[in-house]
Each structure stands twice: as C-alpha cells, then as structure tokens.
Design a protein around this nucleic acid. Sequence first.
DNA 1: GACGCGTGGAT
DNA 2: TATCCAAGCGT
Length: 417
Amino acid sequence: MPGRVDPRWTGATIRESFDEVTPELRQQLLAWWELHGRHGIPWKLLPDGRRPEPGEVLDPYPVLVAEVMLQQTQLQVVLPYWQRWMAALPSLEALAAAAEHDVLMLWQGLGYYSRARRLHQAAGQLLAVHTESRKPNPNRRLSQNPGLSEAPGPYDPELWPRSLEAWQALPGLGRSTAASIVSSAFDQPEAILDGNVKRVLARLIASPRPPARQLARFWQLSELVLDPRRPRAFNQALMDLGASVCTPRSPSCGTCPWQGHCAAYAAGDPARFPVKDAPRTVPYQVIGVGVVLDGAGRVLIDQRLNEGLLGGLWEFPGGKQEEGEAIAATIRRELDEELAIAVAVGEELVVIEHAYSHKRLRFVVHLCTWLSGEPQPLASQQVRWVLPVELADYPFPAANARIIAALLEHLAAAGAA
DNA sequence: GACGCGTGGAT
DNA sequence: TATCCAAGCGT
C-alpha cells in the first residue's frame, strides 16, 4: 500500500510512519535549498535568467539534453559539453537533422556513447510524432487533436509529451531521467532515483541492504518524501543535498537539514551507508594497436560497431594480445583478421594505461607500414585513410585521443629533424 | 537481477 | 597512487 513505509525501514528517530514526518522533511529540505542549493544551473532558468515560479514551464529541449548528459556524469563535467552542444544544436529540429557523426563529435570525451546516439534517435522520434500529428488526416476527429487551440508558450507545446510514460518510451530515457525531465520542465510530481537520492534515502532510513537490491522500495520512498506542491524544487534539493552535504565519504551532518530525522546519523556512522556489495574484480588486458601509415603519409582508422564498448567511435585498429604472443605478432594478426591487410610493425609509439568502468587495458601502440591488401571493415563499420591533420574531424575515445597526441608529436619531431 | 557500458573528479 | 563513484539505461 502506498503511503505506508515498511516497518523495517523505521530507524531510531523515525518511530511513527513516514506520513507524519514528511511535511517536516519537505519544509526543512526546501528551506535549506533556498539558502544552499545550486541555483545557477542554466537549463533550469528561464530565458531571462530568472528562476521559474512553481508551475511555470521551462523549454524541455535544453533539459532533455542536460538530463541525458547527466546520466552517471557529474554536473561540472556536463556543463561545458552542454554549452557547446546548445550552441551547435540549439533546437530539437537541429538535433534531429544533424548527422550522427556531428552528434558523436559533440559527445566526444563524455563517455557512455550510446547515450548520444539514443538521444539523436529520440529527437527523431519526437519530431516524427509531431510531423505525423500535423498531417491533415480526414479520419481524425477534431476532438482527437487538442492543443491547437492552446495559447503558444515559449516552446511548441504540441511537440513535447507531458506524461512520464511518453518520455520513458524514448530511447535512452529510463524512469529517473524521464522523471527528472518532467519535474524540471513542467514541475510535475514525479519521483527521481539517482545516486544522490539513493545515498540520502539509504542514510535517512539506515537501510541495511544495498539500494540496488531494494530498488522498488527506494522508488516508493522517493515518491513518499517528494513534495507534490513543489516537485521541481524538491527533486533538485534532494540531489543538491546529496551532492554537497550527504556526500559519499565524509558527510557534513552538522549542516544537514535532515540530521534530526536521519537514522544513519543516529546510528553514529552515516558514512557506512549505503551498504555496498563487494566490488567485482575487473579484468586486465593488453591491446596491440597499429598506427598504420601508407606511402602518402595517411593513417588508417576504423569506426567501431555501434554495439558494445565505445560504439560508433573511431579508433586505431588493434586487438587483444594472446597468451605467449609477442605484441608485434598481435598487431599483425589483428590487422589481418579485422582489416585483411599486411603490415610491417615498426617502432613503439606510446604505451597507454586506461581504465574503463568494467576493465583495465594497456594499449601498446606501434607505428606500422602498410604492405598489402585493401583495408576491409571486417569487424568495424568502415575504415578510412586520413591525413593526420584530419584526425581532429573524427570522434575518438579518450585513450585514442592520447594516441593521436603522441602521433602528432612524433610527426612534428620527425618533420623538424 | 545482473551485467556491460566511459571518463574524470575527489579523497 | 588506488579506489570510489557520479543526475542510469538497455539487455
């Protein structure tokens, strides 16, 4: 039954039901937020720079872009990417019309690249629905097409869904991102559940189990505490609290508006929450990489498949070193298997250690000379010979960006000699 | 429900 | 330096 908390959640200072303390929790958090919250986030302001009043609507497009960028990514990292994106693709129409290549260029360095491609798809879907609904349709009754008589807002209200379900149906948008969008843009009462909220709530109730194993209950709890009168402000306040006060390592409980209600604080060791599962050991692999040059000074790159790691980005070809295999042999074998070319492996260009979320790689990069075979995209979307100066026009993952830097240094040194 | 999926900031 | 972890989603 909604509106009632599992008795096991009740911590030392939460003796009755949550229903009785939620008004106080809301008031305390919002009062704290007015003084200490992050109020300058650009996509949460009106065009004139004012904060929106309760119920006032924001343009959903900047919010959509920001919320997808913010998935598993900190605010200060997102900000410059969002600024650059909005300058390049200032509208949903511009995004939908953009080439995927340009979308990935704007996302380069942010990570989780499927987000960019799915956001691109989502823009196309939103616009396709809109275009379809605008087509004259003799079978559609007028009453089925409301909105045409509504007063025009600062954005096209017909273009953007209001319901959580419609947003969540878009690629790359799950419940939390969809809820963030509708609560931010429309001030609708939908609960969110990101890392900040999980941590704050886990401490509030001193949850003995990892949030990931209690997702339904954490969603329910986020719904319970949400202030339905000021959902936009409340959700933002909850995240700000987690980001600035209820931090992972050493929370500043002395300044927390919820200290008096926090079961983890009452238990004496708030940093013990949220309880975590034991971390998985990440595999370690050595990758042989070939920077293949032809006689015209061009270098060979390929575009990765959309599925899997770094999908859609470009790279220098290579692959995993096998047991007992010399790295030069790895490079020759991989370029034969994946590109059907023969190369002579030359000097080592650079060695790069790089950690992903789920594996650690050591890239051993060698300059190579192309010998024979027209490169084939046997394990990639496409392959291309480009001049080194043209590498800046392709989206590369972070580790490959370091290879490019090393290559340009090498060429500059060779040219100067 | 577990796992794959990037990168950089903070400590 | 090593580790944690971030405005999560799709499969």
